[in-house]
């Protein structure tokens, strides 16, 4: 009896060891194969020089990094605005009162329109269109205009994420809340929203990963953020390595965010 249990445990250990060994070997083989394939292409020596130049990386990195701080500031501020405004739009869309129909229709149209326009186009339209209106106090700072364009676009996405969360809370919860004597507003605030928000944290964080990359679109308006700096460096030296430096910086924020999504998702599944 004990023998058999020991034998079974040994077999399990052997299987696990064999699995790990197989994974290691196949990964090494795959990497070697890719390196060899890429290295053997006729253009590789040129590509290595123009995209993977250590020298160009070293000289351009400090400038790209200082440009990247602008990206970080921009997406932190835009994220906060989007979190609040998205919730406002979602709440407007879930109201029932007939008196609020115009607001509701406006919110629905807003989501349809701004979710349906490519972000890059919106950055152009806001960035060049708003200053052209030339009204008193029209913003002209390209960072601000780009931030507005991103906020407008992402608010539409995030509003839908919130709304899906609100809809996912079962109607019996609202009824129980009303039955104990809460008003509609209190039922929303104390019973429905807390449950809805908990459920939508993973999809919200996913949208923020895209936002962290899309801040680079503000470059088309001219501010010196990471992508723009890298572009300028690349154009003046005929070496594309600065773009790679910029890409690495974006990964430095998006990959931790992706791991955070995994953690949150795992925790909410466990709860």
């Amino acid at each position: 009896m004990d023998d058999r249990r020991a034998a079974r445990a040994a077999a399990k250990r052997r299987r696990a060891r064999r699995g790990a060994a197989t994974a290691t070997v196949s990964t090494v083989l795959a990497v070697v194969l890719v390196v060899w394939l890429v290295g053997s292409t006729p253009g590789w020596p040129d590509v290595r020089e123009t995209f993977f130049s250590w020298e160009a990386f070293r000289t351009s990195f400090p400038d790209v990094l200082s440009g990247f701080w602008l990206d970080v500031k921009l997406f932190v501020i835009v994220e906060l605005c989007v979190l609040v405004l998205g919730l406002v739009v979602a709440l407007v869309r879930t109201t029932r009162s007939p008196a609020l129909f115009p607001l509701r229709a406006f919110a629905a149209a807003y989501v349809d329109v701004f979710r349906g326009i490519p972000v890059i186009l919106l950055v152009y339209l806001v960035g060049f269109g708003v200053p052209a209106l030339a009204f008193e106090g029209a913003p002209s700072d390209p960072v601000l205009l780009g931030g507005i364009a991103l906020t407008v676009s992402y608010t539409a996405y995030v509003a839908e994420v919130y709304r899906a969360g609100i809809d996912s809370v079962h109607a019996s919860q609202r009824q129980a809340a009303l039955a104990v004597g809460l008003t509609e507003g209190q039922a929303l605030r104390f019973v429905i929203l807390p449950q809805a928000v908990r459920r939508v944290v993973p999809p919200l964080l996913n949208d923020f990963i895209s936002l962290q990359k899309d801040v680079a679109l503000v470059a088309i308006l001219g501010p010196l953020e990471a992508f723009r700096v890298a572009q300028i460096e690349a154009a003046s030296t005929f070496n594309y390595t600065p773009l790679l430096a910029a890409a690495l910086l974006y990964l430095c924020v998006t990959i931790p965010m992706a791991r955070l999504v995994d953690v949150v998702q795992r925790r909410s599944r466990a709860a």
């Binding site: 019996s172 919860q173 009824q175 129980a176 809340a177 039955a179 104990v180 004597g181 809460l182 008003t183 209190q186 104390f190 019973v191 807390p194 449950q195 908990r198």
Partner: peptide, 27 residues
């Protein structure tokens, strides 16, 4: 006071918070 077939407790609140919510907020 209304009690439902499916209990309909608030899952994000503790038992005590479930009971206290209405007296504090509604009353």
């Amino acid at each position: 006071g209304m009690v439902f077939q499916g209990y309909n407790l608030f899952p994000h609140l503790t038992v005590l918070e479930n009971v206290v919510l209405a007296p504090v907020r509604a009353h």
